[in-house]
């Protein structure tokens, strides 16, 4: 279906078969966020090695946009350093997902990003 600007093939593929979907038995950090507007929920688990994300998984339920965003973000985060990811902005997230979303749907794009950031900050405390 090519009429949709948002639901491109790539987004739908990530939704139908998300990358890094699942949990980690031994994780260093986890965080969960809920978007009451949609009822979407994303949980992320990460392990670190030398300050770099060595493994990452996410779980949750939500709309195609929030799941695709989580799938793409977790893939992007793998192997990257905390410092690099701390600098990763909402604008970077929009370029990563590569679609032009409306104000209301931005919350869906940013849900996983918020959870990942939380994992980084929490870890900084240790």
């Amino acid at each position: 279906m090519d009429f949709s600007k948002i639901y491109r093939e790539e987004i739908l593929e990530h939704y139908k078969e998300p990358l890094n979907f699942g949990t980690l038995e031994d994780f260093d950090m986890t965080s969960r966020q809920f978007n009451p507007f949609c009822g979407d929920e994303i949980v992320i688990f990460v392990t670190f090695q030398n300050d770099k994300i060595s493994d990452i998984r996410f779980q949750g339920k939500g709309c195609a946009i929030s799941v695709a965003a989580a799938s793409m973000l977790t893939e992007h985060a793998k192997g990257r350093s905390k410092e690099e990811l701390t600098k990763f902005t909402e604008d970077d997230m929009l370029s990563l997902i590569g679609i032009d979303v409306s104000e209301t749907r931005k919350k869906c794009v940013f849900l996983a990003l918020g959870v990942l950031k939380d994992c980084l900050v929490q870890n900084a405390k240790f």
Partner: peptide, 29 residues
């Protein structure tokens, strides 16, 4: 298997206006 916001957004692109969400009735949902 399809979130109502996705349904509403795709229909919206076809100029079909429907509502999606909790319709200000969270306790009922």
């Amino acid at each position: 298997g399809i979130h109502p916001h996705d349904v509403a957004q795709i229909l919206g692109e076809m100029e079909i206006c429907i509502r999606a969400g909790h319709h200000c009735a969270m306790p009922l949902h």
